[in-house]
């Protein structure tokens, strides 16, 4: 071939095209912000029902996870996500979607090796690195605590 990889790369780069930020960002902002408002609504609701601030936060997470699981099951989460981009990815609902969707998808390979084994195929890294980071912080916190 009479073209080098480098020349090819310049040509390819030119035609790549980029996401139109002026379309994606406002939608991300609106939908992401809206999901957080739903969270705020439930925090207020559970506080009103008498839970303390910590417990209402936990119940809000559980509620949002439930709603996201339901929307995923109905096939609606993906349709919203198509417009929202990171707006549905970054909130905890995105985490739930990442757990529920492979559980559904791989059910055809059985409840053990499909649903259960594949459940954390996307969300697993979030837990692994979250726990690892917290563990490292825990060690630092513990050691500094010994000398204070």
């Amino acid at each position: 071939m009479n073209i080098t990889k480098k020349e090819y790369k310049t040509i390819a780069k030119k035609h790549e095209g980029t996401s139109k930020l002026y379309i994606t960002l406002p939608k991300t902002f609106l939908i992401g912000g809206f999901i957080c408002c739903i969270g705020q609504f439930f925090i207020n609701l559970y506080s009103y029902l008498g839970l303390d601030i910590e417990k209402s936060g936990i119940m809000t997470t559980v509620t949002l996870v439930f709603l996201s699981a339901l929307l995923t099951g109905l096939g609606l989460y993906e349709r919203i996500a198509k417009h929202a981009g990171a707006g549905t990815l970054v909130p905890v609902t995105g985490f739930a979607n990442a757990v529920v969707s492979p559980a559904m998808e791989f059910k055809s390979e059985g409840l053990i090796l499909g649903t259960a084994a594949k459940m954390f195929v996307i969300a697993g890294p979030v837990i692994v690195y979250g726990i690892l980071a917290a563990f490292i912080y825990g060690i630092i916190y513990y050691i500094t605590g010994l000398f204070m």
Partner: peptide, 28 residues
């Protein structure tokens, strides 16, 4: 809640669009 939540999501979207990080990496 709307503003701060929205901004955090926009940061994620910018990372996707500009750095081409995959969704899994962004969550992590």
């Amino acid at each position: 809640a709307f503003l701060v939540g929205g901004i955090l999501c926009v940061i994620g979207q910018l990372l996707i669009d500009i750095t081409k990080l995959t969704p899994a990496r962004i969550l992590v």
